[in-house]
């Protein structure tokens, strides 16, 4: 097993799927010769040619609209939108078409495509390069919304996304791309889409997060244990939609306390849906109000202030203590 960054692990997933299945084609702005601005598609053009690694003209709506056509034909397009902040140009194609062909054609057609895009802040980027707007997609019926939290699950989930019969939006945190390495087995590994994971066992409270926020969440859990002897259970959602509520409902029934962490703005964010499911399915087990640690409801500031915007370990610890101390 090799130790890999998330960039390398995603690259490996694409490479292996392209080797196995000639229906898989990658396309997007700068994904060919340049290997993608984050190098996720590095070398694919050398191995598979420019017919399977397409440098497209600069038009997100066309990239996604064309992917839909390719997918209906029977290919497995994996398109890259350079930054999720530019995916609004193509939102129309996702909302009006990718999500609906199966339904509209009454099962005759389906759209097995993947839209990959970097999201999240923390890399000193320009405006539109730091937002977390997964909820737009999670809110769209007919679409699956996946966000990995590290190299190994990124690789497994991307393979599952490519093989999924329905359109999958796959957000990758820029802050995680090169943040750390993990052992990633050469042999194929997949993870089910629509299934979250308990990544830390505990009985005192449940922490629910995903993507870039898994690291501060896990750090907060360790800190709570070291300093206060608190045993936090931590859940990595991995898929935002369709939401696996079984895992976190079971956990909260055990702990009685829940804290949800995401970088996306708080209002109407994924935390709102999770809290609602908890109220619906675990209300009588709750021993404290459900807490959300999230981005503020403002546009993420330019980078000099982004650290104060993005939830951090201390913020999570403080909120956790509040709900632990409430009777």
């Amino acid at each position: 097993m090799a130790k890999m960054t998330m960039v390398q692990a995603l690259n490996m997933a694409l490479r292996q799927e392209m080797e196995k299945d000639d229906r898989v084609v990658v396309l997007g702005e700068d994904v060919g010769v340049d290997g993608g601005v984050f190098r996720i598609t590095d070398g694919l053009i050398d191995q598979f040619g420019d017919n399977r690694s397409l440098d497209t003209p600069l038009a997100e709506s066309a990239i996604v609209g064309m992917s839909i056509g390719m997918a209906i034909y029977g290919l497995r397009p994996v398109c890259e939108i350079q930054f999720s902040g530019f995916s609004y140009h193509n939102f129309h194609q996702i909302e009006n078409h990718a999500s609906r062909y199966r339904w509209r054609s009454q099962g005759r057609y389906h759209v097995p495509m993947v839209l990959r895009a970097p999201y999240s802040g923390g890399v000193r980027a320009l405006e539109h390069h730091s937002e977390s707007r997964e909820i737009y997609y999670a809110h769209t019926p007919g679409i699956k919304m996946v966000i990995p939290s590290g190299p190994r699950n990124a690789r497994s989930l991307l393979i599952s996304a490519i093989r999924d019969p329905d359109p999958v939006i796959f957000f990758e945190s820029k802050a995680l791309y090169r943040a750390f390495r993990e052992e990633v087995p050469e042999n194929e590994e997949t993870l089910p889409i629509g299934k979250s994971q308990v990544v830390r066992q505990g009985s005192d409270l449940t922490m629910i997060s995903y993507g870039a926020m898994m690291r501060p969440t896990l750090e907060a859990a360790s800190e709570l244990e070291e300093n206060d002897g608190v045993q936090a259970e931590v859940i990595d959602l991995l898929t935002i939609s369709p939401l696996d509520d079984e895992t976190f409902v079971r956990s909260v029934k055990k702990t009685g306390r829940a804290i949800i962490v995401h970088e996306a703005p708080r209002s109407f964010g994924p935390g709102a849906e999770i809290a609602a499911r908890l109220v619906e399915k675990a209300f009588f087990y709750l021993e404290a109000p459900i807490s959300r640690v999230a981005g503020f409801d403002i546009i993420i500031p330019l980078f000099s202030r982004e650290k104060s915007y993005i939830p951090n370990t201390q913020r999570i610890v403080r909120e956790a203590k509040k709900i632990l101390n409430s009777a």
Binding site: E29, D30, G32, V33, D34, V37, D55, P57, L58
Partner: peptide
């Protein structure tokens, strides 16, 4: 150039 894409591939 549009990043790495030359004018000739743009249109």
């Amino acid at each position: 150039w549009a990043i790495s894409v030359p004018r000739s591939k743009q249109t």
